[in-house]
Nucleic acid binder design. Structure first.
Length: 565
RNA sequence: UGCCCCCUAGUCUAAUGGCAGGACAGAUGAUUCUGGUUCAUUUAGUCGGGGUUCGAAUCCCUGGGGGGCAACCA
């Protein structure tokens, strides 16, 4: 055995441990068949990415299979748009599902099983209202004697014949929405509330995105999920922690119906600092227009990250690095950003763009002079080649790269100081032009023709290197800078106050941005780096007249750290 | 206060009864035509108490803390 193999055996997460054990004892004939089971009631987010990477990753690692299954049991909240977006996002992340399944394809089978349970005396039609069901179920905590037991429904002892008749008529549409339910007959005193005669079917006249108006009764998730896994011969049914208490119920259905048992394994869902990941809250952000849409680059949705300029590679790497465990945790957003930088540093072409322009006139450069300089596209990847960058007498540099009363640690431009313009010349600032209000509006500089390309033949060094663009060659474009959507690390802890923690500065639009002409070749979705400012991508709002760029993530900025001290 | 789950540096995660390690974040320095990258160094941890054991992050007991569950949602 190679060392590598030993290394791998050294450290596996608890899920892989369970699977290894199963493979050793032959529980599933060494089969590994997982599934990713979203409900199509919203867009996928980074938390789903964790689950996707886990389920599809497991299948790939163990030479198994992974289904994409839509748990579409609540037609009032589900839509085809969400089905489409989910498929697009899973594919974009780089995964291929073996079978595309829908819980709604099992409706007929589920119905037959419900009839079977009724015949066994294990299910009954109940006329209690939702309010009454809640009251009869009892509550958590309470008395010294333990959880107060629930009360039996008055309809609990209906005959099999009556239940069969009633359930058939429920399906036939004889009863009002919500007027009756089918319930499992388990134990109203069970310490696990999920086992106190849970609802299996409710009456709901809603148009289903796949079954249309065929049904007016719909199975509950809890009655559907376990059997769906069973039908698909799933071996390891991986889900999040909140379903742990439901596992006995899934097992109960499977046992009573004498069906194949997958092994359910629960793990802790992903939480991210400065982010909300609950579907309900994301829906609020979109519907109430706190963000533009599901793919707003500030959204933690897969679509949002894609538009923001995140790569599938970065997200997959992130999911690998956060691991999987049962302890609740909240991952530092900085780790996600690190994964993006790590990927893009190796792959993104560099360009120059000035976000906050300050005009510079090179006084000793010919009026109509022009020069074409050569720039390296990616210092981390020689195969990326070089490009041409035009230079002329009037340039733009970044406003923050000039300071009048510059401290020693400021390596950039100031009157009398010499810096390098990247891939161009050394320049020295000679004069500051201000408007009547005293704002710096222009810099006069001289250049040293001997330093063409960026090195001085006499060997002298400069501390700073600035990015720049030639004024007459520059393309005017728009840049959108993003910051965290929330001002607090854990918006969830704010309860109903969470919307008050939205970061008012999460979006900053720079509409007077000047970029080098080579940028024009880029297409929507392409990623690149603006040297010294960050990684960007071309937004879909780009038009023939104006390009629009999203900043995906900034570069690490040690100057900012020095300033903050 | 019923049931279930969890507790290792600031954060996340390893160590499966035998030297508490890695990553991110932080700090310091070197290199650098990006104050980027890279490299080196470095700060920092087993929730408390008791027990079993030659030996406990790990097993047991107990206390504490965190999370989940009372939709005809998933």
């Amino acid at each position: 055995m190679s060392e590598e193999n030993n290394e791998e055996k050294k450290s596996v997460d608890f899920i892989r441990e369970i699977i290894n054990e199963h493979n050793k004892n032959g529980k599933y004939d060494s089969r590994v068949h997982t599934r990713f089971p979203p409900e199509p009631n919203g867009y996928l987010h980074i938390g789903h990415a964790k689950s996707i990477c886990l389920n599809f990753g497991l299948a790939a690692e163990y030479n198994g299979r992974c289904n994409l299954r839509f748990d579409d049991t609540n037609p009032s909240k589900e839509e085809q748009e969400y089905v489409d977006s989910i498929k697009e996002d899973v594919s974009w992340l780089g995964f291929e599902w073996d079978e595309e399944c829908y819980a709604s394809d099992y409706y007929e089978q589920l119905y037959d099983w419900a009839v079977e349970l009724i015949k066994k005396g294990k299910a009954y039609v109940c006329d209690l209202t939702d309010q009454e069901i809640r009251e009869y179920r009892g509550t958590m905590g309470g008395g010294k004697e333990g959880t107060p037991p629930g009360k039996d429904s008055p309809h609990r002892d209906r005959s099999v014949e009556e239940n069969l008749d009633l359930f058939t008529r429920m399906r036939d549409g004889e009863f009002e929405d919500g007027s009756k339910t089918l319930r499992a007959k388990i134990d109203m005193a069970h310490p696990n509330l999920n086992m106190r005669d849970p609802v299996m079917y409710r009456i709901q006249r809603a148009h289903h995105h796949r079954t249309g108006d065929k049904w007016c009764i719909y199975p509950m998730y809890d009655y559907t999920h376990g059997q769906s896994d069973s039908l698909e011969k799933i071996t390891h049914s991986i889900c999040t922690l909140e379903f742990e208490n439901h596992r006995p119920l899934y097992d109960w259905y499977l046992d009573e119906l004498d069906l194949y048992h997958p092994q359910q394994i629960e793990f802790a869902r992903l939480n991210l600092t400065y982010t909300v990941l609950s579907k309900r809250r994301l829906l609020t952000l979109v519907m109430d227009k706190y963000v533009d849409n599901w793919d707003d680059p500030r959204m933690p949705t897969i679509a949002g990250f894609r538009r923001r300029g995140y790569t599938p590679e970065a997200i997959r790497n992130f999911c690998k690095r956060i691991g999987v465990a049962k302890a609740d945790s909240r991952i530092d957003l900085a780790l996600l950003e690190h994964c993006l930088r790590d990927d893009l540093n190796k792959r993104a072409s560099r360009f120059m763009g000035v976000l906050d322009p300050l005009k510079v006139v090179i006084t000793n450069y010919p009026e109509d002079g022009e020069d074409i300089l050569e720039a390296v596209n990616n210092p981390e990847d020689e195969s990326a080649g070089v490009r041409k960058v035009p230079f002329s007498r009037e340039l733009y540099i970044e406003r923050e790269d000039f300071m009048e009363d510059a401290p020693k640690k400021f390596f950039r431009l100031s009157v009398g100081r010499e810096v390098r313009l990247r891939y161009a010349y050394f320049i020295t600032c000679t004069e500051v032009i201000k408007d009547q209000a005293g704002n710096v509006v222009e810099l006069r500089c001289t250049y040293d023709p001997e330093t063409r390309g960026g090195d001085a033949p006499d060997g002298r060094k400069v501390k700073g290197t600035l990015h720049w663009v030639s004024a007459k060659h520059a393309l005017k474009s728009e840049v959108r800078l993003y910051d965290r959507l929330f001002t607090v690390e854990n918006p969830d802890a704010e309860r109903d106050n969470w919307l008050n923690c939205l970061n008012p500065d999460s979006l900053e639009i720079k509409s007077e941005v000047f970029v080098e002409p080579a940028i024009a070749e880029l297409k929507t979705g392409d990623f690149f780096q603006f040297e010294r400012t960050g990684y960007f991508c071309v937004d879909k709002d780009t038009t023939a007249e104006k390009m629009v760029f999203n900043r995906s993530v900034g570069l690490k900025d040690s100057w900012a750290k020095i300033q903050n001290k």
